[in-house]
Design a binder for these strands. Structure first.
Length: 566
RNA sequence: GCGCCUGUAGCUCAGCAGGAUAGAGCAACGGCCUUCUAAGCCGUAGGUCCCGGGUUCGAAUCCCUGCAGGCGCGCCA
C-alpha cells in the first residue's frame, strides 16, 4: 500500500530532495490509461535549472524502479508510473484481508479524546428536518475519529434553559390538559408554544407572566420544576424514537441547565483577568481589537447569557475530558458566536482554545420559505422518516416481495436515503428540502450504495462464501480494466477517511464509497463471476468480498446500516 | 454600513494545500434483464467554471475590485 513512498525513495536519489518532500507531490492521473501515479516535474525545474520535460526524461532513464512498478513513461512534464496490476491487487487485497472492517483505520488518534457537540436539540420543541444535519454530521465524525484511533465523547448539548419554558408553563396552565400533552407530546407542546405567541401579540402581559414563571424555575420552585422536568422527559422520550430510527447515540446529555452553577467561576476569572468591562449596564469582553463585536457575558439585570454558558461548557469539557479536539457541529449562523467564544477563551489564557472548532453547516429551508418554530411551520423529521420508510416498502413490494423481515430493511434503507442525502455534499451548502430529492433511491444515493453491498452479499452467498479473503489468489485474474478500477477505488479509501477527519467533512468518505460502488457495478456488469474457471471465479469472489467489506465500513462511517438483502 | 459564507451543465453538486482534454448524479432522449439482485449497466445531448484585473511556465483553483445570493452584527439561543 506504500507505492508512493517507495517511488519517492527512488526519485530521491536522482533529485536530492528528501522522500518526505516528494511524497505529497505525487498525483493520480486524470485517466487510468495514463498510469497509476504521476510525478509532475515542474517544481523541480527551478532547483535543477532544467525544463520539466527534460527532467522527466532523465528521471525515467536514471531511476531504479521498484519491483511493483511495470514502467515509467514521460508525458510532457510528467512522469507516469504504471504499477503491475497483480502487485496492486496483491497489496490492496492483502491489507483488506488483514484489517477487515478496520481497513482505512489507524491508531493515529492514540486514544486521545475528542468532544463532539452535535444534534443539541431544544426541549419542548420539535425535532424537525433542520436538526438532521447536525445530528448526522456529528455522528459520522464520531465514527470517523473512532476509526482513526480517537476516543470520542458525543455530547447532546440540550437546549433546556431559557424564557421559552416560562412561556410554555403559562400556555399549559391557560390552555393545556395533562392528558392531551401526554398523548400529543412534543406536538402538543408546540401547539401551546405557537398559541402563546399568537395570544401574546394581543395581550403583552403574557410575556411578563412567562418571565415570572421562568424566574420560578431559576429559583427551584417545586411546581415550576415539576412542569419543567415533565416537559423535558416528554421531549427526550419523543426524540428518542427518532434517534432509534437513525441509530444515533450520545455519551452525555449535559445541556444548558447543567451549567447553571458553573458560570460564576468563569465570570470571576474574567473579572480577575480584567477582561470584563461595564457597558450600558451590561458586562462585556471587548473584542474590537480583533475586529469583532463585544461578547456579552452578563446582561444589565445580572443574568447570564448563551456565551456565558458556552464558556462554562468549554472549560468543563476541557477539565472533564482533557480533549485533543472539541468540535461544535452547529449551523453557520452561529459563526460569530463561536469566533467570539474561542477568542475569549484564548484571552483567558486557555491555550487549548485552538483545539476548539466550529464545524459549520448550511441552512435547511423549504421551497416555500424558512422553517419557523414560533409560527408552527415545521417539518417533523419523524414524518419525513416515515415517508422514506413507506416509499422503501413500496419499492420492495415491487422488486423483492419475497424478502424476509421487510420492515427492518425498509427502516435501514429509508433512513439511509435521508442520511446519505444529508452527508453527500460539502457541509457548508444550504439545502432546500424536497421530498423528491430526499426520497430518490437511484443514482448517487444511499440506497444505491446499500444495494451494491447487498449485491456483493448475494454473489458471495450463492458461492457459499463469507466475506473473508483467501490467502492464495490468482492475482493475474484481476488485471483487466474493470477489476483494476475496483482495486484503485479500494486503494483510495483510507486516504479519504484521513482527509475526512482532517477537514471534518464526512462527504469525503461518502464520495469514496460511491466511487467504489460505481467501479464495482461496472465490474459486475462486464465480468462474470460465478461459473468462470475456478481460479478466475475465486479471484473475482475475493474482489467482491473486499468490496463488500469496504462498503460496509464506509456505510458505517457515514452512518448507514448495510443490509445483506434488499 | 461592517463581518462570515456561497456562485461550475436545465437542476443538485464534485473538482479549488495551482497542473494533463472541467467530472458525476438527477431531469431529457436512445439502448441492455431465458446466466451472479435492472434500487443496475451503456450511449446521446448539455459549460463565457458570475464579470473584470493581477500573480505564475500553467488559474475553476491563489490575490484584488466589482456583481448576485445566504447568514450574522449588545443584553434570544
Amino acid at each position: 500500500m506504500d507505492f508512493i513512498q517507495q517511488l519517492a525513495e527512488a526519485l530521491s536519489a536522482y533529485c536530492g530532495l528528501q522522500t518526505e518532500e516528494l511524497v505529497p507531490l505525487f498525483e493520480i492521473p486524470p485517466e487510468s490509461a495514463m498510469g497509476d501515479f504521476a510525478f509532475p516535474c515542474f517544481k523541480l525545474a527551478k532547483t535543477l535549472r532544467k525544463a520539466p520535460p527534460v527532467i522527466a526524461q532523465e528521471l525515467v532513464q536514471t531511476i531504479a524502479l521498484p519491483p511493483f512498478a511495470a514502467r515509467a513513461e514521460v508525458a510532457g512534464g510528467y512522469v507516469n508510473f504504471f504499477i503491475r496490476p497483480e502487485a496492486y491487487a496483491t497489496a490492496v487485497l492483502s491489507e483488506i484481508r488483514e484489517k477487515g472492517e478496520q481497513f482505512g483505520g489507524s491508531a493515529m488518534g492514540g486514544g486521545r479524546n475528542v468532544c463532539i457537540d452535535y444534534s443539541s436539540i431544544n426541549i419542548a420543541k420539535p425535532f424537525h428536518i433542520g436538526h438532521l444535519s447536525s445530528t448526522v454530521i456529528g455522528r459520522s465524525l464520531y465514527r470517523i475519529y473512532e476509526h482513526l484511533g480517537y476516543n470520542c465523547v458525543g455530547i447532546n448539548h440540550l437546549g433546556d434553559w431559557g424564557t421559552q419554558f416560562g412561556k410554555l408553563i403559562v400556555a399549559y396552565q391557560k390552555w393545556g390538559e395533562e392528558e392531551t400533552v401526554n398523548q400529543g407530546t412534543v406536538r402538543a407542546l408546540l401547539h401551546l408554544y405557537v398559541r402563546f405567541h399568537d395570544e401574546a401579540e394581543k395581550d403583552p402581559s403574557l410575556e411578563d407572566e412567562a418571565r415570572a414563571w421562568f424566574k420560578r424555575i431559576e429559583d427551584n420552585d417545586a411546581e415550576a420544576m415539576r412542569l419543567f422536568e415533565w416537559f423535558k422527559e416528554l421531549t427526550l422520550k419523543d426524540v428518542g424514537r427518532v434517534y432509534d430510527m437513525l441509530d444515533v447515540h450520545f455519551d452525555s446529555y449535559a445541556g444548558e441547565s447543567f451549567y447553571n452553577d458553573k458560570m460564576q467561576p468563569i465570570v470571576d476569572e474574567l473579572n480577575a483577568k480584567h477582561l470584563l468591562k461595564e457597558d450600558k449596564g451590561a458586562y462585556i469582553v471587548d473584542l474590537e481589537a480583533y475586529n469583532m463585536p463585544p461578547c456579552i457575558v452578563l446582561r444589565s439585570d445580572g443574568a447570564s447569557l448563551y456565551a456565558t454558558r458556552d464558556l462554562a461548557a468549554a472549560v468543563y469539557r476541557k477539565e472533564t475530558y482533557d480533549f485533543a479536539k472539541s468540535l461544535y457541529v452547529v449551523a453557520y449562523q452561529q459563526d460569530l458566536h463561536f469566533r467570539q467564544l474561542f477568542k475569549v477563551l484564548e484571552l483567558m489564557g486557555r491555550e487549548w482554545a485552538q483545539d476548539c472548532e466550529h464545524v459549520a453547516f448550511g441552512m435547511v429551508s423549504m421551497q416555500d420559505g424558512t422553517l419557523s418554530t414560533r409560527k408552527g411551520k415545521v417539518l417533523f423529521l419523524e414524518e419525513v422518516l416515515q415517508a422514506a420508510i413507506e416509499k422503501t416498502c413500496a419499492t420492495m413490494e415491487e422488486k423483492s416481495p419475497d424478502l424476509e423481515d421487510k420492515q427492518t430493511v425498509a427502516n435501514q434503507v429509508g433512513a439511509g436515503a435521508l442520511v446519505w442525502n444529508a452527508l453527500y455534499n460539502n457541509r457548508i451548502k444550504d439545502i432546500v428540502f424536497s421530498y423528491d430529492k430526499a426520497l430518490n433511491f437511484e443514482g448517487e444515493t444511499g440506497p444505491y450504495v446499500q444495494y451494491t453491498h447487498a449485491r456483493c452479499c448475494s454473489v458471495l452467498r450463492k458461492a457459499g462464501r463469507d466475506s473473508s479473503i483467501p490467502e492464495e489468489i490468482a492475482y493475474e485474474a484481476l488485471c483487466d480494466e474493470e477489476s483494476g478500477k475496483v482495486i484503485r477505488a479500494l486503494f483510495a479509501f483510507p486516504g479519504a477517511v484521513r482527509n475526512a477527519m482532517e477537514k471534518n467533512e464526512p462527504y469525503l468518505v461518502a464520495r469514496a464509497v460511491m466511487a467504489l460502488c460505481q467501479a464495482y457495478n461496472k465490474f459486475y456488469f462486464d465480468c462474470r463471476i460465478l461459473g468462470e474457471k475456478p481460479a478466475v471465479e475465486q479471484a473475482r469472489l475475493a474482489l467482491t468480498a473486499a468490496t463488500k467489506t469496504v462498503i460496509a465500513t464506509g456505510l458505517y462511517l457515514v452512518g448507514l446500516r448495510a443490509p445483506e438483502r434488499m
